[in-house]
Design a protein around this nucleic acid. Sequence first.
DNA 1: CCATTATAGTTTGTTCTGCAAACCTTACGA
DNA 2: TCGTAAGGTTTGCAGAACAAACTATAATGG
Lengths: 110, 110
Amino acid sequence: MPSQAPFIEIAALDRLVHEPARLAILAALAACRRADFVYLQRLTGLSKGNLASHLAKLDAAQYVSIEKHKARGRMLTFLSLTPAGRDALEAHWASLATLRDEARTWGDGV
Amino acid sequence: MPSQAPFIEIAALDRLVHEPARLAILAALAACRRADFVYLQRLTGLSKGNLASHLAKLDAAQYVSIEKHKARGRMLTFLSLTPAGRDALEAHWASLATLRDEARTWGDGV
DNA sequence: CCATTATAGTTTGTTCTGCAAACCTTACGA
DNA sequence: TCGTAAGGTTTGCAGAACAAACTATAATGG
């Protein structure tokens, strides 16, 4: 029987970060200072509603910060990664790498 | 505006493989010739029902093969990765790496 | 100057998915 | 033979992703 490590790795996968759309959002924000709503929508291919709800969840977790500016009378939304968000993303990549590589040490389960 | 590539990468993330429990199952199976049901259950920490349903989905996608042997009157289930499953997993690791690294080229979206 | 279309989001409702509780079947022990 | 354990399967529900519908403001045009 292997150690409990694999189970721990699975549990360590933060679903909030792991979900494909949010993973893409976080990856995009990690690469730039900030981005606006429409840019992220194009980048991810998500519908507006869907993107809004994903951002709301990331905001609730303090992974992104949402700033709304009034520009030309119109409300524009800018997103950026918080330090916590950056940490969570880095930790996630690390968890995935661990899961990938550690599996090789688990041996046969027959 | 960036190319459409990021969107494509997101779309390329196979949810069937991406889901944490199944990712762990596939990673485990990739590391051994085959494993039995109980071994996988311990490895993943999943409940029986949950594991069964995940395996059913992987089986439906031809990613794993399920063999049931009658041993000591009891039905034992053995799982192994199909070539398609192995390919899907490898492709998935590659997609994740691409998403991770390519994000850096997207630049600011402001 | 009013109507239309476009932009930028939010809210609402449906559908799908993961999860565990309950159930089934066979074997084993007292 | 009655109870308990092992090994899975089926069912029901809570939550999450997704898009359609809605709101609000700004540019366009007749």
